[in-house]
Write a protein that binds this DNA or RNA. Structure first.
Lengths: 229, 229
DNA sequence: CCACTAAATGAATGGCATTCATTTAGTGGC
DNA sequence: GCCACTAAATGAATGCCATTCATTTAGTGG
């Protein structure tokens, strides 16, 4: 069977105009764009705990069931949000900067955007690109940047996936509680870990999350940079 | 206020015996170990969609509310599962192999374990280590390995966090649908991405997820390895 | 003005985590 | 041998949730 209902593909099924045989319905209050915008506004105001279909409908002055004429499920709303957010990820450096700097700028921007939306990560990470056109556009820009710099073609996707995995994982760290490394009463039995945590804290100009992200990202950039030819 | 109720800390609050002033209660059917074991078995059989407090109680022949005498919330059960799973992550190579190989073995093992339990990742990623003693033990083993190889102490935590972020992100990829990169009808407008996907597929002995994980992991190992002194 | 249609409605469904007053049954002290 | 105390288990209730569906509403092209 074909993959699940695709939000994007359904809105313009490649060349086919939306058909209608007879009269138009009444002026629609709702469509996917309206829903996406309202959903994002709601999430920013109430977080993902407060983001329910009922609450979303309320902000649109509409019954909850009305949403289901435009969207198959709550998950589909999350997909719409994620694709919209992806357009805020800055890929412009691939046109203006060196490859190294472009990857750096893109990765920091990507993490920045999704660190405020970590509940979307499980959705994005396994989402077919065909269901998220703006996300696909981002991949295209990044792929083009990799190709231009002489990156071996058969490894472009792997490199991007690896970077993205690192970015998603790192996005969680940004929101972690400050005392996450406090080993509490078990400090005595974990001397190496505990002393490493202290050493980090003593240094710490950057936040721990930023320090880890920077360290890992530079290693990935250096490692991948060496593959170019 | 102190951090949330700690499963592990509550079972042996460092030196204090569990107090009781008067008679013991009836022989308990339930405790955290029993719950953890049953929960893991249920997850393996029914997945995380089928994992509800009611279903868990049913497998234990107990009322759902009985669970709340031993556990504060469903989230706490997830924490118990995650900590238990962490003991299946193999850190033994840090005692027997070179640093490079030990990191490699540990990372593959870590990804392997959690790729079957991705719904736990949002929980683990922001969980204070004090709430997960077996996880803390893993960090201790890894920290010790990094220290032994002459890794700069103030960067040990950052390096581990970076590796872990990469591992968590990569765990999602393992479960992604095979057609995740199929750009479908929009292939024409994304030539660089589409050709990169084809090049990968043409190569592809490994799964795409394995190829990306291997590529990223080797870059991180090489980059971090160079920091040793 | 009619037939058709998509959109919106409101009530209903079933599932969920969690709470709480109450009951149950060991145990240590007398 | 009984009593007082306790932790554990119960079952009913709560409130929230996503989702479904039969029905109603109101533009529009013929």
């Amino acid at each position: 069977m074909p993959s699940a209902t695709s939000a994007a593909a359904d809105s313009h099924p490649a060349g086919a105009r939306p058909r209608r045989r007879a009269g138009r319905p009444p002026a629609a209050v709702l469509d996917q764009d309206t829903i996406t915008t309202a959903a994002l506004r709601l999430v920013r105001k109430s977080g993902y705990e407060g983001f329910t279909m009922a609450a979303l409908a309320r902000t649109l002055n509409v019954a909850p069931s009305a949403l289901y004429n435009h969207v198959a499920s709550k998950r589909e709303v999350l997909v719409l949000i994620q694709d919209h957010l992806t357009s805020f990820v800055d890929v412009s450096a691939f046109d203006t900067e060196s490859w190294d700097q472009a990857v750096r700028d893109w990765a920091w921007s990507y993490r920045e955007v999704f660190s405020k939306h970590t509940p979307l990560i499980p959705v994005i990470a396994v989402l077919p690109v065909a269901d998220a056109p703006k996300t696909l556009a981002m991949y295209e820009a990044v792929s083009a940047g990799f190709r231009r710099t002489g990156f071996p073609q058969e490894r472009i996707i792997s490199a991007i996936v690896a970077l993205e995995s690192f970015i998603f994982g790192s996005a969680y760290d940004v929101t972690a509680p400050a005392d996450i490394f406090d080993s509490g009463s078990m400090a005595a039995s974990t001397p190496n870990f505990t002393s490493a945590v202290e050493r980090l804290a003593r240094q710490g100009l950057e936040s721990p999350a930023d320090a880890a992200f920077s360290l890992g990202l530079e290693a990935l950039i250096a490692g991948f940079g060496a593959l170019r030819r």
